[in-house]
Nucleic acid binder design. Structure first.
Length: 462
DNA sequence: CTAGGGTTAG
């Protein structure tokens, strides 16, 4: 398509007016300009063109006004919609059914139902009957507000008014029913719709499938999905997501994976988001290896996990104490130029310390420092507790000093853990010497000395 | 002789 306008254009309107002095032109160009601006998402310029056309004395067509309205609605500029509508009245442009339907849609998004009905009365006075779009807009609005009774009332009078319900009408009503947990009734309505000769499309299938999924009725969802494929209606990304998440909520991840393989056999494209959802979900359900193999499978399609997905995997591997796999993934991240963050390192260090590999934990901590990610209190706790558990009191003490000096981390809990191990394995003198050394460390940092730690341990009676 | 175009959904 040829680009008619772009954001760095100058004064197109002005140029057109100047042009008009030299050659034969039709003011229809202003209509086209308005439409071009709306299409290019330059609504301000579209609005400006509308204004200036009116000033110059040219009356834009109703279709141009509708274009502008449509653009304004999409950007939720409600007030400006009414400005356009008033201006139309002032200069004698007659609104048509499109205009009214768009404005009714604007009113429906508000809470005030009376306003809508008033407006419709006015519209009828001007000689326009509500058409199928009008009814659908109203039905949809009632359904969204949970007013199913009103919605079905309109559905019934549509026949009498000669506006036959279409796919939009049925889909809106089914959606309303599903929201109230009445998915069986929605399905009956679906049957009635088919019986009346309408062919369900992706949207109507999706609505029903979504309703079943929300209620955890995955068998029904699945058979509808097959039904839709059988009828030549292609599932889209919404269908896939809704069904996979439906299985996910029921913790039936294997079923979800099987279904996706089936869909792939039908050459239905699966969005990476859906696979990513499953990878994360498998991690959450403590199945990091399944998650990892899924990740490898989709990597062949060019999917590249981001740091959050990597962290989920690493967290899950660590939670199951598969620290070697977690470290390997961290290395993979670094290779792919994805910088591990505090979450990554916290998980790894925590896990290493838990399985009595605190020396390795400290090594990882040094690496994060080298990469410019400062450790936090949780990492301090993990390492000190780890060393204490492994009875490596000297390393614990020197690390405590390191965290204080380099990162201003003064963690009472870690200190107490150290004191506790010492109290169980050394004499009071050694303990007092430790406290002296730590107090000096704190004074060096300009911190007040300090907290009767020994109290906590029942040594206080000294 | 005529030019181009607008509305509702999960």
């Amino acid at each position: 398509m040829v680009k008619v306008v772009s954001p760095d254009d100058g004064d197109v309107f002005g140029s057109l007016v100047l042009c008009g002095e030299d050659c034969n032109w039709d003011p229809v160009v202003f209509d086209m300009l308005i439409k071009a601006y709306v299409k290019a998402n330059m609504i301000e310029q579209g609005f400006g063109t509308f204004r200036r056309s009116v000033e110059v004395g040219f009356v834009p067509s109703v279709v141009a006004c509708n274009c502008l309205l449509n653009g304004l609605v999409k950007l939720r500029c409600v007030d400006r919609c009414w400005e356009v509508y008033e201006e139309m009245g002032r200069i004698g442009i007659h609104p048509n059914a499109y205009t009214f339907n768009m404005l009714i849609n604007v009113l429906c998004k508000d809470k005030d139902v009376d306003k809508v009905n008033e407006f419709i009365e006015k519209m009828e006075e001007e000689g326009f009957d509500p058409d199928v779009v009008t009814y659908n807009t109203l039905i949809n609005s009632y359904c969204r507000k949970g007013r199913l009774g009103d919605a079905f009332y309109l559905y019934k009078i549509m026949y009498r008014r000669g506006a036959l319900p279409d796919l939009f009408s049925y889909t809106a009503l089914m959606n309303g029913l599903c929201k109230e947990g009445k998915v069986r009734e929605a399905h009956q309505l679906f049957h009635r719709m088919v019986h009346r000769g309408l062919s369900p499309d992706t949207m109507s299938y999706n609505t029903l499938i979504c309703g079943y999924c929300k209620e955890g009725k995955m068998k029904e969802s699945r058979s509808l999905l097959y039904e839709m494929i059988g009828n030549g209606v292609r599932p889209d990304s919404f269908t896939c997501r809704v069904v996979v998440e439906g299985y996910g909520n029921e913790s039936k991840l294997l079923s979800a994976l099987n279904l996706l393989s089936e869909l792939e056999r039908f050459e239905i494209p699966i969005s990476p988001d859906i696979y990513e959802y499953l990878v994360v979900k498998l991690c959450e359900e403590n199945r990091p290896f399944a998650a990892k193999s899924l990740l490898e499978r989709i990597s062949h399609y060019g999917y590249v996990p981001d740091i959050d997905v990597y962290n989920e995997l690493i967290l899950s591997l660590c939670k199951c104490n598969y620290v070697a796999g977690a470290l390997a993934l961290k290395a993979e991240m670094v290779n792919k130029n994805i910088k591990p963050n505090i979450v990554t390192y916290r998980a790894l260090i925590d896990c290493l310390c838990k399985i009595n590999k605190s020396v390795e934990g400290e090594y990882v901590m040094k690496e994060m420092v080298k990469f410019g990610v400062p450790p936090d209190t949780a990492i301090c706790k993990a390492l000190i507790n780890g060393y204490c558990k492994e009875m490596d009191i000297n390393r614990a003490e020197s690390l405590l000093g390191f965290f204080a000096r380099e990162f201003q981390i003064f963690d009472t809990e870690s200190y107490n853990a150290l004191v506790k191990v010492l109290s169980e394995n050394a004499d009071v003198t050694t303990l007092m010497e430790l406290q002296d050394r730590m107090q000096k460390e704190l004074e060096l940092q300009g911190k007040m000395p300090c907290v009767p730690y020994l109290d906590d341990l029942g040594f206080c009676s000294i």
